[in-house]
Simulated assay, not measured.
Amino acid sequence: MSYINTFIKVSPDCPVTSSVVPQYKTSNKPIHVIQYELLTGQPYQYTHEQLLFEVHIRHKNIPAEELALHRQQIWDALFSKSHACLRASALPKKYGWGVHYDAEGKIAIYGMETPEYERFVQSGQEITLLNGMRSRRG
């Protein structure tokens, strides 16, 4: 699902009080770490679908040669099934990052302690506000 002019707030049951850079201990980066790196490194570069695709490529370590030859097939296979939106990402659920989709559906993230985050939350009618999904029923 892709949004426009939408801000996903940190989940109500998020365990942190300010944003945290996600860490990992395995040899393969988890999806939320790749999301964090892409969205902080290139804010407003990716739409939801583009982000999903780029994360998939990196998470599965798809070689550049294979990508060059089979990009469309990889894209089609990935999107032949549904995917969760960023409301379900660990970034707003566990790490304190709000997610902004601009008028073109391009995405950036903002730490919950930042003035930008607060500006989005207080923006009123100009933007759709959604909560990140809870980690637990509650």
Rank of each mutant, 00 (worst) to 15 (best):
52 L>H: 04
79 F>T: 10
66 E>W: 11
45 Q>Y: 10
31 I>G: 02
66 E>I: 12
97 W>H: 01
101 Y>W: 11
22 P>D: 02
121 V>C: 07
36 Y>K: 04
87 R>Q: 04
61 N>P: 13
16 V>Y: 02
130 L>R: 05
75 W>T: 04
116 E>A: 14
71 R>S: 10
9 K>H: 04
50 Q>Y: 09
59 H>L: 11
8 I>Q: 05
40 T>V: 09
59 H>W: 12
132 G>I: 01
16 V>T: 05
101 Y>S: 07
90 A>T: 07
137 R>S: 15
109 I>V: 12
133 M>Q: 13
53 F>M: 06
128 T>N: 09
58 R>H: 08
124 G>T: 10
83 H>F: 12
15 P>M: 07
135 S>L: 13
51 L>M: 06
56 H>P: 04
48 H>E: 15
137 R>N: 14
67 L>V: 03
42 Q>P: 04
115 P>E: 15
12 P>V: 07
135 S>E: 13
18 S>V: 14
85 C>T: 02
99 V>H: 01
40 T>M: 07
94 K>L: 14
65 E>P: 07
107 I>G: 04
121 V>L: 05
127 I>G: 00
126 E>V: 15
3 Y>Q: 06
12 P>Y: 05
2 S>C: 12
108 A>F: 12
2 S>M: 14
109 I>E: 11
20 V>T: 11
112 M>L: 14
124 G>H: 06
97 W>T: 03
121 V>K: 08
34 I>Q: 00
126 E>P: 06
104 E>T: 11
55 V>K: 00
97 W>D: 01
19 S>F: 10
44 Y>W: 08
123 S>E: 09
8 I>P: 04
54 E>G: 03
125 Q>R: 14
67 L>F: 05
29 K>S: 13
25 K>C: 11
41 G>L: 00
113 E>V: 15
11 S>A: 14
123 S>Y: 08
99 V>D: 04
71 R>V: 04
84 A>S: 14
23 Q>G: 10
101 Y>G: 06
54 E>C: 06
132 G>C: 01
112 M>N: 08
87 R>E: 04
32 H>I: 01
